[in-house]
């Protein structure tokens, strides 16, 4: 089997064939999810814990639904109810959860690298649901699936990633994935929201949105966090919208059949015009949500297969899993 990873901590460790295998399996789950009876037994009897140190509704529900459709027992733990508030360290939380023998641990944390640290301490498969400004691999995979279904391929496409690149794990995972699949990536946004060393990324960097969108096949908008809006990084919402908000005029610089993506939740009138977001001919934002469940099912299915195989090997060698 192509997909060998024990955890899904990022896109960086994945090979192009591994990425393709996740997307191919996800296609079958897209079909399953469109049926009335959306049930598989891939995770039957397994326990999935969603451990969210950072608030999330969309990603957490997507993972929860994915696990349930695969037959897992799913438990949600969010920071508000957890002992982290009482001063427990990240590692103690991990060890506590580990003692409950989960099989899949889905983790979101506000610090880059926190999910990797946790993965070292547990005996189950860990999925990174977003760590700080580092990676958000399932988002990049669902974006890739959405693009592949709309454009028929992932190579030789011009993809413009626009907005707050510096603070975005979505941008980082996407540019790694699309780079591995040999697409051409452009980063577009204010210089104050570009990551340091951006010139060495091997992407084209544009401050002017019209130049950045010229002949793009895919326009990927990023969410502008509220705390960046006033004065520190950009002067105001209205100036940001004027210069980098996606409206019909700016989109006209992209290819006529360019698709528009957004990881959500959107700030209409800040980074994207409402009519563009709702344009069924251009916007694939709703498809991204649908692909999200399918991709997460595929990723968890593949990790579960590897986990079972690993435990099987351990038993055969006389140890215990």
């Amino acid at each position: 089997m192509t997909f060998r990873a024990r955890h899904l901590l990022g896109i960086e460790p994945l090979s192009p064939p591994e990425i393709t295998s996740v997307l191919d399996l996800a296609e079958t789950y897209v079909d399953l999810n469109r049926r009335t009876i959306k049930r598989s037994d891939a995770l039957e009897g397994m326990t999935q814990i969603n451990l969210f140190f950072e608030n999330s509704t969309r990603t957490q529900s997507s993972f929860e639904l994915a696990g349930k459709r695969l037959g897992a027992d799913v438990m949600n733990m969010s920071v508000a109810q957890s002992s982290v508030k009482k001063g427990e360290t990240l590692i103690d939380t991990a060890l506590t959860l580990n003692a409950m023998h989960p099989d899949l641990l889905v983790v979101r944390h506000s610090q880059s690298g926190a999910v990797n640290l946790l993965a070292e301490k547990v005996n189950c498969a860990v999925l990174n649901a977003g760590d700080g400004r580092h990676e958000h691999p399932t988002q990049a995979l669902l974006d890739a699936l959405t693009i592949r279904r709309a454009k028929g391929r992932l190579h030789r496409l011009t993809v413009a990633i626009c907005g707050d690149i510096a603070h975005s794990r979505v941008a980082r995972s996407n540019l790694i994935l699309l780079g591995k699949m040999e697409s051409r990536i452009r980063l577009v946004g204010p210089a104050t929201l570009m990551p340091s060393g951006v010139a060495e990324f091997g992407c084209e960097v544009y401050e002017d949105m019209r130049e950045g969108l010229a002949d793009a096949d895919v326009v990927m908008m990023l969410r502008l966090q509220k705390e960046r809006m006033d004065g520190g990084f950009i002067p105001s919402e209205r100036e940001y919208y004027h210069r980098w908000g996606l409206d019909a005029e700016k989109l006209a610089h992209a290819k006529p059949d360019a698709i528009v993506m957004h990881p959500g939740p959107m700030n209409r009138g800040v980074e994207i015009d409402g009519t563009i977001a709702d344009d069924i001919n251009r916007s694939v934002i709703q498809d991204q949500v649908e692909m999200g469940v399918a991709v997460r099912m595929a990723a968890m299915d593949l990790l579960a297969r590897n986990l079972r195989a690993e435990r099987g090997r351990a038993l055969a060698e006389g140890g215990h899993a």
Partner: peptide
């Protein structure tokens, strides 16, 4: 350069 010349938030330079 900054709103109210207070040195906390940049003005709308492009506008």
């Amino acid at each position: 350069l900054t709103k109210a010349r207070e040195g906390r938030e940049m003005v709308e330079m492009a506008f």
